[in-house]
Design a protein around this nucleic acid. Structure first.
Ligand code: MN
Ligand code: MN
Ligand code: MN
Ligand code: MN
Lengths: 220, 220
DNA sequence: TTTTATTTTTAGGTAAATCTAAAAATTATT
DNA sequence: AATAATTTTTAGATTTACCTAAAAATAAAA
C-alpha cells in the first residue's frame, strides 16, 4: 500500500515519462513543487519498494508495478473529474484540485461502481483517455492545433494544459471539446491563429494554439 | 486548516461528547485506536488552535469553532454515505470505511453540490441526521427498541452500531430502516425480544435490541 | 484517612516527509 | 582536456504523529 505522497510521486513520474525516457530528479521536483533533495529521498524509497528503477545521477523509470499503480491513480483522477462535471455540474476548469484529492481514496469497489454509474466513460472533461480497470486505454494520437495549415478542418478533442486560467479562456472563446473548427488564417507576425467556428471567428495566440488537441477530419 | 488526523480527533470528541460532558483522554484513545499519551499530545495541539477547551486531568470539551468543524465532518461523512448507497448501490454495511476517507476531502463547493445532487437528504443510511450547511439538524429523539413493552408498535429509524457484522445481521432478519414492527414477546430468561414484522416473526438478542432505534407510533 | 487502582501526563525516542547547505557527479563550454 | 555550469546526492535538521516507560494526579477501596 502506498501513501498519498508516494502515489503523487508515481503519477508525476508517469506523466513526465510520456516526454522523456529517463525522468530527472529536477523535473520531478519542479512538478511536485518540492526540492531535489526531497525527490532523491523519495526515489530511494520507491526503488526499495520496487516501484521504480533507479541509477544514481541517471534518473528513474517506472517498473511494471509502478506503472500500473500510476495508471490506476490516473484512472481514478479522470473518473472523478467526469463525476464532478457530469453529475455535479462543475465546469471543466474547476475539477482538477478536487480530483487531485479524490484520486487517493482507496477502494477498488468504489471506483468500479463509479465507473459503471458514469456509463464507463472513455475520456475525461479535458479529452484525456480513461484507462479501464485493467489499465488499458487507447493512445490518443491527436494533432496539436498549432500544426494545422490554413484551410485544415478538425474537431477539438483535448487540451494539454489544465490550468483554470487557460480553460476559462477557451470557454470564453467557445473553444470547447467537440467543437468543429477550421483554420482560416495564421498571422506571420506573431504566429497567432484565426479559427472559424460554426457561428463565429476567433483569434488565438500561438501559445494557446500549442495546447489544443485536434482530431483532424479532412484536409482543406 | 486541519489535518486529516486533527479532523478525526475532533469528530471522535464530538461523538463522545454526546454521552459525557467532559471527554476523557482514555475514551478518545480507545475510540481512535491509539495510546493515551498520543491523545494528550493532540489535545494540547487542538487546545493551542482554539478547537478544544482543556484542563489537565479533567478532559476536553469542544469550543464553538471545534464543534462546528466536527459537525461539518459529520455532515460530509453522512452525505457521502447517502451517495454510496443511493447512487452507487452499496449496502448500508459497506459504506462506513470509504466515507471515513471521503469525509476529509476539502471543498465546500463539492459538498454543497453533492447535497443538492442527492436531493438534500435529512438522514444517512443508518438513520443518523445530516446537518445542513449551517450545521443545523433536528436532534432525533428516538427510543431504543429494548425500552419498548410487549404490544408496542413502531418504525425502525436508526441504529447505534455501525459495524458490518451487526448491520448484515439486521439485514438478514429483515430489520431495515422504515420497517414497521410490533413487540410480541420479551423473554424473561435472556431478555431476548420477539418482533412481529408485516410478513414474519423474528427473535433478536437483548444486545441487538439495544442498538436499534424506533420512532414509536402508538402504544399497544 | 491511608492505601490501592486507575487515569493522565511527561520524558525521551522513532519514522515519514520535508527542508537548507554543502559536496560530488555529470554535462556543457571554452 | 581543462574549466565552468548544471544536476544530483549527502549530511544534518525540522515537523507531525506516533510510540514505550515511568512519574504524577485523581478516584476508589479498605
Ligand atoms: Mn494527488
Ligand atoms: Mn483531466
Ligand atoms: Mn476519518
Ligand atoms: Mn452512518
Amino acid at each position: 500500500m502506498q501513501s498519498y505522497t508516494e502515489e503523487n510521486y508515481l503519477k508525476t513520474i508517469y506523466h513526465l515519462a510520456e516526454k522523456t525516457i529517463n525522468v530527472q530528479t529536477n523535473a520531478i521536483a519542479e512538478q511536485m513543487q518540492t526540492k531535489p533533495a526531497s525527490v532523491t529521498d523519495m526515489i530511494k524509497k520507491l526503488a526499495d519498494k520496487g516501484l521504480v528503477d533507479y541509477i544514481k545521477y541517471q534518473g528513474v523509470t517506472l517498473t511494471e508495478i509502478g506503472k500500473n499503480t500510476a495508471i490506476d491513480i490516473v484512472r481514478k483522477h479522470r473518473l472523478w473529474e467526469v463525476f464532478l462535471v457530469d453529475k455535479l455540474n462543475f465546469k471543466w476548469d474547476e475539477v482538477h484540485d478536487v480530483a487531485e484529492e479524490l484520486e487517493h481514496i482507496k477502494s477498488i469497489e468504489l471506483i468500479e461502481r463509479l465507473d459503471e454509474f458514469l456509463g464507463f466513460p472513455k475520456a475525461d472533461p479535458h479529452g484525456d483517455p480513461i484507462p479501464d480497470k485493467n489499465g488499458r486505454f487507447a493512445k490518443t494520437q491527436f494533432i496539436k492545433l498549432i500544426e494545422l495549415k490554413i484551410g485544415d478542418r478538425g474537431t477539438i478533442t483535448g487540451v494539454t494544459q489544465h490550468s483554470s486560467a487557460f480553460l476559462k479562456h477557451l470557454e470564453k472563446l467557445g473553444l470547447t471539446l467537440g467543437k468543429q473548427i477550421q483554420i482560416s488564417d495564421v498571422t506571420d507576425f506573431d504566429g497567432s491563429v484565426e479559427i472559424r467556428l460554426s457561428d463565429k471567428q476567433v483569434n488565438i495566440s500561438r501559445e494557446v494554439a500549442k495546447h489544443i488537441l485536434i482530431s483532424s477530419n479532412g484536409k482543406n
